[in-house]
Structures are given as C-alpha cells and as structure tokens.
Amino acid sequence: MESTVQLPKIVLFGDSLTDWAFNEYNAGFGWVLEEEYKGKAELTDCVCTNRYTSSMLAPNFEKIISRAKNPNAPPTLLFTIFLGANDACLPPWSGHVPLDKYEANLRAFVETILSTKAMTDTKIVLITPPPINIRESLPDSPIGSNSEDLQASLEEEKKARGYRTYMNKKQYAEKVMEIAESYVALTDRVIGLNFWKSLIDTALEQQGRLNAEDAYDENKLPGCGLPGAKEFKKGFFTDGLHFGPLAYKLLSEDLITAVLQKWPELGKYKL
C-alpha cells in the first residue's frame, strides 16, 4: 500500500528569479534545494507568471497561508521571500512599488507567518533583490577632455535611467536587511540574506578590487554602467536582470549556508 505520509514543505515565494531557479540548467536554488531535500521535504514554487511584485503577489501569499492552515497540511519548515527586483524598477514601469509600500508588504508577509498558529516553527529568509548588470561604457575619453569635462560627463551618465535603477535596487536591498535586522530582538525565526552584497563582493574579488579603498565607490560598482565600471562576468546574468548559472550557484550556496548556520536542525540528515 502506498504511503500517505506528507513531507514537510519548503516554500519559495518570489518572482521570475525564483521561478527560473527550478531549472536544472541554471542549477538554481529551487533545483538545488529539491536535490538537497529529496525524500525529506517537498519544495513549493509559489510564482505566478503574470504577477511579479510584492503587491501583485499578495493574493498568492494569502493562498499559501490558507493551505498551511488546513488541518491536514504538513508543516512548513522554511519560507523564503525573494522580491524587489521588479518593485524597484523606476516609473513609468507599471510594476513599480514605492519603497514604503514595499517595506509594508514584506513586513505584512513576515508578520502573517509569525502569527499563524499552523506555522509556529516556520523559519523565514528574506533575500535582497540583486543589482542589475549594465553593459560597460566605451573606455575611451573624448579627445581633449579635461577633468571638469569628465566629471560633467559622469554626472550626466548618473542621471540615466539605468544607473538610477541600479542605485534604487541597492536601496531596496538595504531595506530588506533593515527589516530582517528589526526582528533580531523579537524572534530567532527571521534572517536576511544580503545577496546584493554577495554578488557585488564576488565581482569585486574577480576584478581584484575587493580590498581596494574605493571598492564600494558608487561610481565604480560592478554592473552600474558608469565609465570605468566593469560589468559582471559572463554567466552571472543572461540579460540585465535575470540570473545565469553562476549567480544561481552563488545564491544556492549562500542560502544553504545561511539556513544551516542559523538553524542547524534544518539539515537534511536531521529531518
């Protein structure tokens, strides 16, 4: 007779970056976790293809919570929330979610999980949105240009939509870590994963700049698109937004490390 025992759940809640994470070719964190917890837990990909921001996905979140409350539902071990890549895109992008609304949405998600009786043991990981990857500018300066001309050109470049979007995503990433930090004194069930910084640090290390005094100079950050700034190596992004295998590999490693360091009881051999 076939067993009717239900495996505990691991919920990955997010946009297309989470959806693509279940692709074996990408070796995304969804696929990696499925392999890691095979026979121990069931992965749930909670993505809706026509909804891609924290506001648009709120109804999907409510459905997840409703299922978790079912008396016959298995426990939810882990709940990752990976949103903001689309929220942070600047107007007139129709999906833009203002920073204060984005914060309110994430806090509502976290508070709901923490206060749901059926999820009293559920652990939450808030993953920051990543940077974007803008192609490198042409390296040559205009003939006869002086430092004032170059500075004026740089300031003009910083007004471009691409750079402003890049820096806006940095702000949203910082907000995610701020939210996670605010729960430290309240519960041990919430952590933040600063994937924005992890990607930046990896690129800086590859460029030999990680320990440089100007490593985090906002005019030279990897992928920012300003003159002199280097883009991410091939394999990290498939376009300006979506991840390639190298970025997904890094995220998988970061996520598993963060989860097991904070909650060793979630190790596959302890379930």
Rank of each mutant, 00 (worst) to 15 (best):
L57R: 04
I65P: 05
E42N: 07
T53E: 03
L43Q: 00
E42S: 06
P74Q: 03
D45V: 07
L43D: 00
R51C: 02
N72W: 04
Y52S: 10
R67A: 14
P74I: 08
C48A: 09
M56T: 06
I64P: 00
A73V: 06
A68Q: 12
K63A: 12
N60A: 13
I64L: 15
S54K: 10
S54N: 09
L43A: 03
A58P: 00
C46N: 00
N50L: 12
A73G: 03
M56D: 12
N60Q: 12
A73E: 08
K69A: 09
A58Q: 14
E62C: 08
I65T: 09
A68S: 13
D45E: 03
F61S: 08
S55V: 15
I64R: 10
A41R: 00
S54F: 05
T44P: 00
A73M: 02
D45W: 05
K63G: 06
P71G: 06
A41W: 02
K63P: 01
I65Q: 01
E62S: 14
R67G: 07
L57G: 13
R51Q: 06
T49N: 11
R67C: 08
P59R: 03
L43G: 00
I65M: 02
M56Q: 15
A73N: 08
R51T: 01
K63T: 12
P71L: 09
R67L: 12
A41S: 04
P75W: 04
S55I: 14
V47Q: 00
Y52F: 12
S55E: 13
S55Q: 15
E42P: 04
F61C: 08
Y52W: 07
S55G: 06
K69D: 11
N70R: 10
S55C: 13
I65Y: 03
S54A: 13
T49Q: 07
N50D: 13
N60T: 14
I64A: 11
T53M: 03
R67F: 06
D45H: 13
A68L: 12
S54C: 09
P75C: 03
P74H: 01
C46P: 01
A58S: 12
Y52I: 07
T49A: 12
T44N: 00
P71Y: 03
A58F: 15
N70K: 14
D45S: 11
F61V: 11
F61I: 11
M56N: 05
R67N: 12
S54T: 13
C46T: 02
